[in-house]
Design a protein around this nucleic acid. Sequence first.
DNA 1: TTGTAAGCGTTATCAC
DNA 2: GTGATAACGCTTACAA
Lengths: 316, 316
Amino acid sequence: MASIKDIAKIAGVSISTVSYALNGSNKVTEETRQRIKKIADDLKYVPNMAARTLKRQRTNIIGVYVTDYRGSFYGELLDGIKRGLGYYDYDMIVCSGSRSHLFIPEKMIDGAIILDSTFSTEEITQFADEDYNLVVLDRELDYSSVPQVLLDNKGGATLAINQLVELGSRKVFLITGPNGSYDNRQRLEASVKELERFNMSYDVINGNFTEASGHQAAEFIFSKSPQVPVDIFAFNDEMAIGIYRYLKDKPYVIGRDVRIVGFDNIEIGEFLEPKLTTISYSKHRWGIIAAEKMIRLVSNEQAEDELIYTSLVERE
Amino acid sequence: MASIKDIAKIAGVSISTVSYALNGSNKVTEETRQRIKKIADDLKYVPNMAARTLKRQRTNIIGVYVTDYRGSFYGELLDGIKRGLGYYDYDMIVCSGSRSHLFIPEKMIDGAIILDSTFSTEEITQFADEDYNLVVLDRELDYSSVPQVLLDNKGGATLAINQLVELGSRKVFLITGPNGSYDNRQRLEASVKELERFNMSYDVINGNFTEASGHQAAEFIFSKSPQVPVDIFAFNDEMAIGIYRYLKDKPYVIGRDVRIVGFDNIEIGEFLEPKLTTISYSKHRWGIIAAEKMIRLVSNEQAEDELIYTSLVERE
DNA sequence: TTGTAAGCGTTATCAC
DNA sequence: GTGATAACGCTTACAA
């Protein structure tokens, strides 16, 4: 509410003196600084963001865009980003929905970290052409100015297939995500490649990363009374959970008659019975690295693409 | 990048004409409006947020403050708030961490919806005194200008106890949240009151709403080889999950030897074996109502407190 | 119907 | 060391 004008009036100095005093310039005596700071505190002065931004042409805020707020997937990632940005005195806000895409050209934020399928790649490249600072976590882009921090989906899928191979699998059901998803395409490509290397047969069943689609896929598989053991690589854990749910009142025993590998290592997996074997990676680290890339961008430094490696979590 | 100045220059008009044309004022001919709009589009003009805010003195953005980003708890709530605000042309950003509290006095946001224990109640009342628009979801406050949208914790706790009573319970273990939590205190108070009404005995075991503390509580209870059935009211689902995990390799059978009621109805509950009985409420509706209160505030209308009612979800 | 100009709250450049 | 003052990009009352 109070502005530097008010402070200046009370202190009997000009507004520029107030500004200098408050911003720690050495152009003002220690004594006046103290006096002015005291008045500012008494008035509970806080600089107006809009005015400061208008002048400075930056906000020190980074926007993180997510597809939606649901799911236990984002929490750790956001924590990581926030931590990474905090080291460098940047604030973070989390946004979702296409209206908030406007924050970018409006210059409300100094940069955007994107894990949000409501951004079209075209939209992103347009922003990139206009020199906004962007980091993408959910797609490949042929834009050297937009660093990508991507999951090593191929490595993860290869690990998953190998695990099934080691268990003696002869045939694998692949339950995929939606076609539009970059992660899905990568996982599929690597899985097929690895399966063919071992000369194994496989069936591709289209899912869409939701628990419901996993349930459906299981229905499809088991309604044909397949030969046990049935081996399944679900391209994410949520779909694997759908399979668990389908099998709950069926005679098939998970771990013996059905072997499932998931992807993402979401929290629930550990509470399933039996615990879900899955492909894991550090979401926290993913966030920290994304933040680092963004910091480099706003500092006008070059930022390289980076891969987040995966590992197999073998459970029951 | 392009400003109305650029547009004015190209169109050969003054900046005010551009502003009028773009803001749909009827002070300019349809013809010039079209011409100017065309140029603006070509230049990909987007108004600068800081400048507009500085002039208008509002941002049309509401900040939602959460304690942290983890847990599957917030997703639906945020969805609800976003939906509720969207109806009225307000944007929403999600914030966490004490640094971002500054957004409020900086006037970066027109109001704050708070579900964030890092706000002290003193801080909130100070902001309220300075006439910022606040809605709280996580505490009681004697401030008529700050509407509260609270869970009916007492109703929920009463339901939980009644459920155990109906199952024939004689004694109940209450596993609480942290002392500082308003929700926890309410649940405890109502539970005790209800238990005493039925003349039942009970033990209070201090937890802190984390899964780990639920696990510990279970360890404490079962290490004393208690008389079965053991009846437990865990003040949230996460702690109930901790109990499940503890009991996994123990001889006690949940549903027969141990009966547990949780609180919150988080998603995981349905995948536990057996499914978790819990106290439920619509997080989505909670969010929508919180948004409505905020809209009333920014419209300078009176907003009443409101309670979000709970129900028992009886599972296995 | 269009243009001029003041003002929003800061920061920063220049005189003094 | 301090004070005027221009500038950031926009909206809007008023003048033309």
